[in-house]
Design a protein around this nucleic acid. Sequence first.
RNA 1: GGGCGAUUAGCUCAGAGGUAGAGCACUACCUUGACACGGUAGGAGUCACUGGUUCGAUUCCAGUAUCGCCCACCA
Length: 955
Amino acid sequence: MGRSAAVAVPEDALPKTYDPAGTEARWQAAWEAAGAFHPDPAAPGEPFSVVIPPPNVTGSLHMGHAFNTALIDTVVRFQRLQGRNVLCLPGTDHASIAVQTILEKQLQGEGISRHELGREAFLERAWAWKGESGGTIVGQLRRLGYSVDWRRERFTLDPGLSRAVSEAFVRLHQQGLIYRGEYLVNWCPASGSAVSDLEVEMKEVEGSLWHLRYPLAPGETPPDGPDHLVVATTRPETMLGDVAVAVNPADARYAGLVGRRLRLPLLDRLIPIVADDHVDPAFGTGCVKVTPAHDPNDFAIGQRHGLPQITVMAKDGTMNAAAGRFAGLERFEARRAVVEAMEAEGYLVKVEPHRHSVPFSDRGKVPVEPLLSTQWFVRTEPLAARCREALERGEPRFVPERWSKVYRDWLTDIRDWCISRQLWWGHRIPAWFVVSLSDGVIRDDTPFVVAGDEARARAEAESRYGQEHAAAGKALVLEQDPDVLDTWFSSGLWPFSTLGWPAEGEQEPADLARWYPTSVLVTGFDIIFFWVARMTMMAGAFLQEGGTPVGGRDSWLPFRDVYIHGLVRDEHNRKMSKSSGNGIDPLLLIERYGADALRFALVREVAGAGQDIRLDYDRRSDTSATVEAARNFATKLWNVTRFALLNLDGETPASLGHPEPASLQLADRWILSRLARLNRETAERYGSYGLGEAAKGLYEFAWNEVCDWYVELIKRRLQVPAELEGEKRREALADQRTARQVLARVLQELLVMLHPLMPHLSEELWHGLTGEAPETFLALQAWPELDAAALDGELEESVAALIEAIRVVRNLRAVAGLKPSQPAPVLFISGRPSLQELLRRATADITALTRAESVQVLDPQAAEARPAQRALAGVSGELQVLLPLEGLVDLEALRGRLQKDIGKAEKEIQGLSGRLANPSFAGKAPPEVVAECRAKLAEAEAQAELARKRLQDLG
RNA sequence: GGGCGAUUAGCUCAGAGGUAGAGCACUACCUUGACACGGUAGGAGUCACUGGUUCGAUUCCAGUAUCGCCCACCA
């Protein structure tokens, strides 16, 4: 066999360079065509299920989605390799308010309002938008290589899920957990809808504090008391709705005034002075104006004192008729006008700059207005109580654990959830008003029925109000509530609605029966309240009865684990978001580096405690050093596999079989031991959400151990010289086969273990290596069996010592400035027989890896007997390394190197002897620590001494 | 006002009760038959500060500072 034979490239060898785009597209298509990720509920295997957090159909995905996807897909692919019956269910969310905001902005650009357009036409546009955006998103998820079951893809507004929503609404209503009523809600004038407390964001603004004088009503002034009170407010326009002024009951200043009346300026309304504990006498004047219809605190005060509620603002944010002469003004104009009027009439005492928090609407980006409004609410406390109890039992389990406290605290002191939205895009509330009883229009007091559909609503209404209508001789007319539900209402049902809940008959749907509860929810901490808690509350309402999970399950909770990950931050450590315009399109990075590189980069950044990750990014060139490093890793894997293929002579791991244990060389046993250790650690890490650690461990093994050392160590064995004959040749061929067997096996198992992180590349390389048919997928293989017998800690230490010895030689050569190609003799001196033995056995390896002219191993006595000789000398532990190179040596560099050795050893001696000199150390530290310390000290002393001697030899 | 996190090499971050690691960047050499998206060797850190526990703290505890986040009705 000549050189040409070795160079000949096998037919199925990999191309010289890796093309991620082509490879990824090919495998994505192959997996999908084969239905590789379509599980069968009837199939065997312990179930494992994940429903993905459905992205909003608001455009396209950002890096946070890519991150979430990478994490979920890693977990899910690992579980598949573990032989579980894995369902990963994808879908999208209709995002009622967000999508409607986008569409209304579009309409604004066209100069029409949604009301001009009409509900039906508006919804048509919304569905068109959904089609486009949903398609983009699904395309992006595919490009990431998401191993989900696309057949089961769901959309929160599709028929099945809509059925789940109305069923949920009806049942909650029946249970008394949904009610309708007039309360103070957060009103967003921009979207013209109520929003929930969670959709309100407090922002600090530089505002003003206006001090207003309210005169006592004529005849109310007490003798030698004040004739007015001064109140302070940040929202002067609300004074038009004032119905009282409150003081603290313990406030002596105003004790005599409680119960007397004030004359409200501008409107000349008489309002009482009331005493209420809520008032802090130390703040401002200790007097608070009370506007129950426009402030949550005042609402509560009003309730306590039986005060009227006067709404002075309309829902579009303009003042209404109750505002008298200010009617029709926009709310901020009204503020200016009221202040002006108060000043003109002498009621403005002073204005102070005042920094305070103002509630802003999350979506509309304008201040929300607390407004009295009739809305639908979910009574949350009973639902939250169930969840708190479950959490006491450890359900669900939060990873990292600290988030469970955040979850619990929110469920404690929870407020009712306003679920109705005055929007069009969403699930219409399944309530029908009997408008024939209220002049054909829906009023706050119009009777209504709640039912799954209009036919049932009509039947119900007939039975309740039919007689009444018949008596009056008029027809019963129903009108469905025009409002839609908060998006999170349907999201809250996601873990079971997507699996087929509610059952249509007696029988539970197969998916629900098989895969509920889901195994883990993977999401960011920013939606623990919005989503995680809503899902647990909803599950508590529908998946348990009397504390017992339905369907004979062991838990009614929607997921066993909640894995909370951080957010992706940009290069300036800002949260990536669309609104701040600092998002990075994952597709740009995928196109440049490949989906596997992006996935690997994101997962590798994950630290143990769920911290945020930062993705470095150069916006000018659309490059990322982090992702580039992951791409380089992919290339490294590509190349090492190419190397293997070039050397396996057409054989595969299967055709080669397992090596004979007796024929294994040191390097083989070492890498197999490392492989077994990696197998154990990686499975443990994948299985316990240590994904970043898993990625790092695989990276280090592949690059630092396989590529840097194992491959280098076996290169000679893979090449059998043509001139070898007879027994020698047979031996060499046998040894070559062993090396091939080990290399093939290590790579094969490595690729399986890497698969969850880099699915496409590993699939491609695995096929190249194994020669398996294209329709057999790595994605569906079994996790490699742990070869516990291969674990050998002592051997690993030996090889670490060998590696260290080689490093010392290389370092000496570098210090002396030897050309890499220049051979040099190597002399090792050690008094440790095991080390001598190791070095002698590895002579060939050392020769190859250090360009040694010759390798000699001596014990110190033998070395002593040799004539003193100038040499490059280095000391590592108790091993001396000499490169006798008379004449070629850069003496200065050599002295430097030795001096450095001495310095290092001395520093260690100082530290160690200091510790040992401390009597309490020897007395109290564990004996093995003391012994180790002594050993290290002895070694360091020997090292220093040897180095000094070598230095002396140099003259 | 409460709570949570962070503070380690120039940058981004790991880490563990026994004298600190990785990737990127940096320096020198190397186009060696897998790989220059590479190899070899190297430089680089009073582990934020102050106390305490301990034989020993960068690691555990308490406090301080700075940064970030979440929750909260002070007009």
